[in-house]
Simulated scan of single mutants.
Amino acid sequence: MFYQFSVGQLECAVVSDGQPGPPFEPALHDYFTPDSGVPDDVLRAAAGRLTLTCGYNCLFVRTPDGMAVVDTGLGASFLGYGEYIEPLVGQLEAGMKSAGFSRSDLAAVVFTHLHQDHSRGAIWSGEARFPAAVAFAHASELAFWSGPVDAPSAQPHIEAARETIRLFGKRLRPFEHGAELLPGVTTVAAAGHTPGHSAILLESRGDRLLCVGDTFYDPLQLTNPDWATPWDLDQPASITSRRAILERAADEHLLIHAYHLPFPGLGRVERSGAAFTWHPVC
């Protein structure tokens, strides 16, 4: 699946790496748990459903310096969530072909963070899948995954993160927040989910899009911005970042790209009292 649109003069496309549907949609109680601050009875009362739709929406943008992609999905031959998942993900390269992109076209890979569902698509075969591309990740992200990692929720991601760092080698460039990586592509602070978790702002001719990575997984986190997940390594920081991102998105009327929302993950945010609401644009 792919969806093409533009941000000013920046030609963009969301390409899906997959989106498991019923009966393989993940359970809400796996994402929002008592340990992450969401008691079971609160979740049941707020949700009115048992599952969420988890997309893997990779954002391509054609810049004056070449084609870039923000995050790369789980990649092929992935069994980490169980055997059922393998045919449902790893669709990025097929989607790229349908959209008219080739692996050798890619000039840059921008990682919001290095969890396996954002980075493995670039390295799953044991080699860098985009041989002409440089890569970008926040300096704190690279330092974290290169050192000792003790957090239990981080363990499934260590192999992909370290392999990404190894395979890109000197072509993996650390950035700080507020840096312009490519013309019209700037990084925005969103730490907490991981130490270097970042949002990515596209801007051209007055149009703007904010790619929010894993700032939220489901619209429930807009109506309940203080809900964290088991994968937020610093839950208080993730909540602070989520509120800041949502406030900015609402106040500045930004188009949002949400990696895990249903394809293509594009929408806008509005304030609703102390909370927010999600309005998909397509």
Rank of each mutant, 00 (worst) to 15 (best):
W227A: 01
E86W: 01
A94L: 15
A13E: 05
P230G: 07
E176H: 12
P183V: 02
G147D: 15
F168M: 04
D30Q: 14
E93A: 06
V69C: 13
I85H: 09
C282A: 15
S140L: 15
P23K: 05
Q4R: 14
T112Y: 04
D71N: 14
A274N: 07
D71V: 00
Q91G: 13
L201A: 14
G80R: 04
L28P: 00
L254E: 02
D30P: 00
Q4L: 14
S238K: 05
E159K: 14
D226A: 13
V149C: 15
Y259M: 07
R120Y: 10
P225V: 07
W227T: 01
P131R: 12
H115Q: 13
L10M: 12
D30E: 11
S204Y: 01
C211I: 06
D40M: 13
P20I: 03
G196E: 02
G100T: 05
Y217Q: 05
D150F: 15
S241C: 10
G184Q: 06
E83G: 14
A250R: 03
L114F: 06
E163I: 06
Q221G: 02
M67A: 09
A258C: 14
F175Q: 01
R166W: 04
P183T: 04
L142F: 06
G192C: 11
F111P: 01
M1Y: 10
S125Q: 10
A244V: 03
S16C: 10
P39E: 08
V15Y: 03
G8P: 03
A249C: 14
A143C: 14
P156S: 07
A13H: 05
N224W: 13
D65P: 04
K170Q: 12
T186Y: 07
V61F: 05
Y31L: 05
G80W: 03
Q116M: 14
C58N: 15
Y84Q: 09
I256W: 00
S153V: 11
G55A: 08
L92D: 02
S102Q: 07
P174K: 10
R171W: 02
F60I: 01
G18S: 14
L28H: 02
R120H: 11
Q235S: 07
Q91I: 05
P236T: 06
E86V: 02
T53I: 13
R62H: 12
E252A: 12
G75P: 03
G265M: 03
P39H: 11
L88N: 06
A107G: 08
P225K: 05
R103K: 14
S241Q: 04
L52R: 10
L74N: 08
V69Y: 02
P262G: 09
P219Q: 03
T277L: 15
A143P: 06
R103Q: 12
D226V: 12
V15Q: 00
S140W: 10
